[in-house]
Amino acid sequence: MSAVHYESYTQARAHLKDLLDASDEGRVATVRRDSGRAAVVDVERLRRHLSLVCPSKAEVVAEAGGWSVFLPGLPLAADGATFDEAIEEMVQALREYAEDWQERLRTAPNHEENWGLVQLIVLSDDAELHDWLVGAAR
């Protein structure tokens, strides 16, 4: 089967099952709305792809009897008494960053390119973010 494309929201709504089936099968599924076009993508496929193209590059440092985690190039850091606590704190910091990005940072010049990271954060559960940070494959 080929890609599924609808030229209007009304067409897409009338064929929603076909649109979602195409997405589930990994086929290209799009909808035109005014001058824009939106893609309907299976969440797990998108999350898995983003985790590959957006490696965390997290740096973890043991210091002062605890652990610190930071992501170079991002204003994010977390500390914990243990390695796992520091990673858990970083997961929470990522969640807060994603909220802030969606509320106001998405239009800031030094944050607007973090769209993929924010999608990855929001589409991942805590265990998936933990594995992404430490480089573990699921």
Rank of each mutant, 00 (worst) to 15 (best):
H130Q: 07
I87F: 06
L133A: 01
C54H: 12
C54R: 14
F70N: 08
A12K: 01
A38R: 14
P55A: 00
A127D: 15
A93T: 08
A3T: 13
V118K: 03
Q92G: 07
T10D: 12
P109C: 05
P72R: 00
W67C: 01
V134K: 02
W101Q: 05
H15I: 03
R33E: 13
A39Y: 15
V61Q: 11
L19V: 06
M1L: 12
E96T: 10
S68Q: 12
V134E: 07
D84W: 04
Y97T: 02
Y97I: 03
F83T: 02
S56A: 11
Q102F: 13
V28N: 11
A81W: 03
L20C: 09
A127I: 13
L123K: 02
E113G: 15
E96S: 12
G26A: 06
L16K: 13
V91Y: 03
A136M: 06
G26D: 04
T107L: 11
H130Y: 15
E44F: 06
H111Y: 07
E88G: 09
L16D: 07
A14S: 13
P72V: 02
C54E: 15
Y6I: 00
V69A: 07
H15R: 12
D79M: 08
M90A: 01
H111N: 07
M90Q: 00
A29C: 02
Y9W: 15
Y9K: 14
D21F: 07
E63K: 10
K57Q: 13
P109G: 11
E25F: 10
L71Y: 03
G26E: 04
R47Q: 11
H49M: 14
T30M: 08
S56W: 04
R104D: 13
E89P: 00
V134S: 06
R45Q: 13
R138T: 09
M90H: 01
R45Y: 09
P75G: 11
S56H: 04
E59Y: 03
V40H: 05
V69L: 06
S35M: 14
D84K: 08
V4M: 11
Y6G: 00
F83L: 11
A78S: 10
S124D: 06
G65W: 06
L46K: 10
L117A: 02
D131K: 07
A3N: 12
R13T: 10
L46F: 09
L46Y: 09
T82R: 08
A64Q: 08
E7H: 09
L105W: 08
T10K: 15
A78E: 01
A137Y: 10
V28F: 13
V122G: 10
